[in-house]
Nucleic acid binder design. Structure first.
Lengths: 201, 201
DNA sequence: GTCTATAGGCGGATAGAC
DNA sequence: GTCTATCCGCCTATAGAC
């Protein structure tokens, strides 16, 4: 992964202001969405003036784009890592691990991931190409996993893998709407969801 | 249903301008969401001046609230009607009919329903009490149907009905993100989805 | 790197003529 | 019922001092 490395290098050179701005933007985007979140709010929360943001970023779009892509990449990497850890497990166990990783990344780790969902679910903003690519790459992970499950017989051969993938991701991302830390347990939710769409084994 | 009757009566008295405004607002809200949709846009699309909207509505919130509630009520009534039509069918067939009705109402009939999803999914606006009530009432329909399926044995007794309901509605409403009229068939999608979460029978 | 100041436009909303 | 005119505040973005 070369991007994170480059990013860390850049941060070292400029004292992390850029990261601070992105962190703050992520938090505000998560609760407010694209249009409600203003540069004034971000600047205020960071503790600088609105105009100073333009030293670090060329536009609001650029800030949002970076937050959103970071969020999707974070979920992507978490799911890939979970699948690698469960490489030897049963297909059903791998599915459950992937779902658990997705939900954990979405709800347990920072604002970037939730902000991603909130901002680019629906076309609330003109979706940049980079975002489209990052999303597509993540979609491929699930396409592969579902194909694997179907080949292993954990999903019936007559089920449409594409419909299944869209339903599943929709349901997982929709959890930003109703999930609350105290009221649900992510591991249990993952178990429930996995049981819905694949046979145990 | 007394509300629609009252509404029709009102419309007769004022020439349908009110309905025209709501129709237009629904269309814009569907594609733009709450914050992106402005009174100026609505007025322009209707063909009147911004200020004239205030003769018909007290505020932007009032317009949005009415669109959203109409949308949810439309889906609610469609699903209830479908269940009534399939009163004698098997639990699985009733589930499939309900899913098909939800998806059809969501995608096949106007902008109100999609606007509802788009606007109040996430808390993009301060959710009025009336909206909360209308949503809750619709949620009850699914709670009842899922309980029925579980009692009939079409859903395993160890499945959490609440997790299942949230998964189901999240997946269905998420379809506003990817569903396109030519590329998917609603009846097929309903069949796929019903097969996913309940045993045939 | 951050500041002040400002440009130019759009947001919702109101007053009052017709 | 619709209009013109206007208020006031916030928006993104830029210019230029420090």
């Amino acid at each position: 992964m070369s991007a994170p490395v480059a990013k860390v290098a850049r941060e070292g050179a400029e004292g992390g202001s850029r990261r601070l701005i992105l962190d703050t933007a992520a938090r505000l985007l998560r609760s407010g969405g694209y249009h409600q979140t203003t540069l004034r709010e971000i600047a205020e929360a960071v503790g600088i003036r609105k105009a100073s943001l333009y030293y670090h970023f060329a536009s609001k779009e650029e800030i949002v784009e970076e937050v959103v892509n970071d969020g999707v990449r974070f979920v992507h990497e978490a799911v890939v890592a979970a699948l690698a850890e469960h490489a030897a497990a049963s297909p059903h166990a791998r599915l459950e691990a992937a779902i658990r990783a997705h939900l954990t990344a979405l709800h347990g780790h920072g604002d970037y991931t939730s902000a991603s969902i909130k901002v680019f679910t629906f076309g609330a903003m003109p979706v940049p190409d980079s975002v489209r690519q990052v999303r597509r790459a993540y979609g491929e992970v699930w396409r592969g996993l579902i194909a694997e499950l179907q080949q292993a017989g954990a999903i019936a051969p007559e089920r449409s893998p594409e419909a299944l993938r869209l339903f599943l991701l929709g349901a997982l991302n929709g959890s930003t709407d109703w999930y609350r830390p105290g009221r649900f347990d992510i591991a249990e939710l993952a178990q429930e969801f996995a049981a819905l769409i694949a046979q145990a084994g």
